[in-house]
Computed example of a mutant assay.
Amino acid sequence: MTTSTRITKGNAAEHQRKDSQEIYFYGTCLIDLFLPQAGIDAVRLLEREGLKVLYPQAQTCCGQPAFNSGYRREALAVARSQLALFQKPIPLVIPSGSCAAMFRKDYPDLFRHEPEYEAALDLASRVYELAEFMVDVLQVQLCDQGAEEAVILHSSCSLRRSLSAHDQTLALLGQLNKVHLQEPDRASDCCGFGGTFAVKQPALSAALTRDKCANIEASGCKRLVGGDQGCLMNIDGMLQRQNSDIESQHIATFIWQRTS
C-alpha cells in the first residue's frame, strides 16, 4: 500500500491531494521543553508510515494559555505567528489533544474578525491529534513486540470533549494485543491541570488530581499512558509526591517502544 493511498483514507480532509506525502508536525511547548523524546517518537511513528514530516523551527506556543485566560489580543499575536508557519495544504499532526483543540476549535473563533480568518478555517480543517491521524487517516496496523502488561489510560478533557477523539486512542492502543488496557473509575473527570487553572485555583486543582491519582492507583496498573503532556506531568507530579511506583509515559513513546 502506498503512502498516497493511506493518507487519503478514512476521514481525511477534502483538501488533501491524492499525491500528498508530506505532513506538518507541531511539537507543543510542553513536549519541547519537558519531554522531547515523546516528540521524537511521534515523528518516528509517522515516518515509519512513509511520510515526510515537516517541522517548522519557528513554532512556539499555540496561544492557548493566554486565550483561556481571556487575553485575546495577546493570544492572537501568538496564534498569528503560528498560522504563518503551516500554509501548505497538508495535514498538521499534533501529539496533544489540548493543542490540537486550540488549532481546530479556537483559532476560527480567535480570528473571526481578522484578515486571516479564512486561513485559520483552512488550517483548522487540516488539524489532527496524533492517535486520531494514525487511526482515521493512516489506518495503521501495529504489531506488538512487548511483554504482557496492564496499562491504564488517561485521556484529556480536550481530547474527549473538544475533539471527540478518545475512541481513536482506545482503538490505537487496542491493537497492542499484549497490553491489557484499563481506564480509571470516573475516567472522564478532569485531572486538575487545565493549564493556567492549576495556577489560579491550586487547592481545587490539587483535590481533582488527588482523586484522579487515587482511581489510577486503585487499578493496580504500574504504567500510566496518555496523549497530553500537561496532564501526564500533573498526575505524575502528584504520584511522585505520594511515593507511587506508577510510571507515566506519553503514548507516542509507549507505542514506539512496543512496536520497534
Score class of each variant (00 low, 15 high):
Gln145Ser: 12
Asp167Gln: 14
Thr8Glu: 00
Tyr55Ala: 13
Gln82Arg: 13
His250Ala: 01
Gly227Cys: 12
Ile255Val: 05
Glu114Thr: 08
Leu176Met: 07
Arg223Ser: 04
Ala77Asn: 08
Ile216Lys: 03
Thr8Leu: 07
Leu181Thr: 06
Leu46Gln: 06
Val127Leu: 03
Glu129His: 09
Ile31Phe: 06
Gln59Ala: 11
Leu208Ser: 10
Cys143Leu: 07
Gly27Glu: 06
Arg241Glu: 14
Leu172Cys: 05
Asp185Cys: 01
Tyr107Trp: 05
Ser158Gln: 07
Gly70Trp: 04
Ala77His: 06
Ile7Cys: 02
Asn215Ala: 13
Lys212His: 05
Tyr26Gln: 12
Phe133Arg: 10
Glu149Phe: 08
Gly192Leu: 01
Thr3Phe: 12
Ser20Glu: 14
Lys200Cys: 09
Leu51Cys: 00
Ala203Leu: 15
Gly174Met: 10
His154Lys: 03
Ser219Trp: 04
Ala206Gly: 09
Gln175Gly: 07
Val93His: 07
Arg126Pro: 03
Gly192Cys: 00
Leu30Tyr: 08
Arg6Asp: 03
Leu153Glu: 01
Asp189Pro: 06
Lys18His: 11
Asp185Tyr: 05
Lys178Cys: 04
Asp19His: 04
Tyr26Ile: 04
Asp144Ser: 08
Ser4Arg: 15
Tyr26Phe: 14
Val78Thr: 13
Thr209Tyr: 09
Lys178Ile: 11
Ser125Asp: 15
Ile246Cys: 01
Ala101Gly: 09
Leu204Ile: 13
Asp144Asn: 04
Pro115Met: 08
Gly63Ile: 14
Gln175Lys: 11
Gln21Met: 12
Gln141Gly: 13
His180Arg: 15
Ser98Met: 07
Leu172Pro: 01
Gln16Trp: 15
